[in-house]
Design a protein around this nucleic acid. Sequence first.
DNA 1: ATAGATTTGTTCGTATGTATA
DNA 2: GTATACATACGAACAAATCTA
Lengths: 86, 86
Amino acid sequence: MDADAVIDHDAPTPVYAQLAAILRARIERGDWQPGRRIMSEAQLVQAYGLARETTRKAVRVLIEDGTLFTVPGRGTFVAEPSETSP
Amino acid sequence: MDADAVIDHDAPTPVYAQLAAILRARIERGDWQPGRRIMSEAQLVQAYGLARETTRKAVRVLIEDGTLFTVPGRGTFVAEPSETSP
DNA sequence: ATAGATTTGTTCGTATGTATA
DNA sequence: GTATACATACGAACAAATCTA
């Protein structure tokens, strides 16, 4: 999926999965480097016009596959490549 | 069968098969494009005045021949032509 | 040291849609 | 025709951790 792709609410793919793919593409493209903080949940909501729980679910997908990790009160960060694909 | 055909409860053809033919005609006519969502089950029930299980059976016919596919929580979608007739 | 702002974590509720009995 | 279950999506509210002024 393209990094600048737009959310399609009528597509078969769930919105949260679309956003997860977009974020993954932006990370692979280098928009956010390993160890760096990505947009906050509020910024994701604003940028993609989604509900907070939907953006959180997208982030959770990337957390579960080792791409991102969160720090309460700090933000959401890009994991080191070694942690993603050893 | 015509896309605007009406269900005939007294015809030899089962009602679910009539509806399946109607939906197939509407798809072939372009009412719903590949990858797009068709009416929900509730809308089909409302539009054609049938029981829910009858509309589900009609949809199942088109799923089994590769015309449609469903995504829980999302809806029923038109398959890509390549998936229908390779 | 305190207050406020920011950010993630959690818990409700509502609505829609398919799956199953 | 009803009921239950599960998945998706949106909305609101509050708590906890962190940072800044």
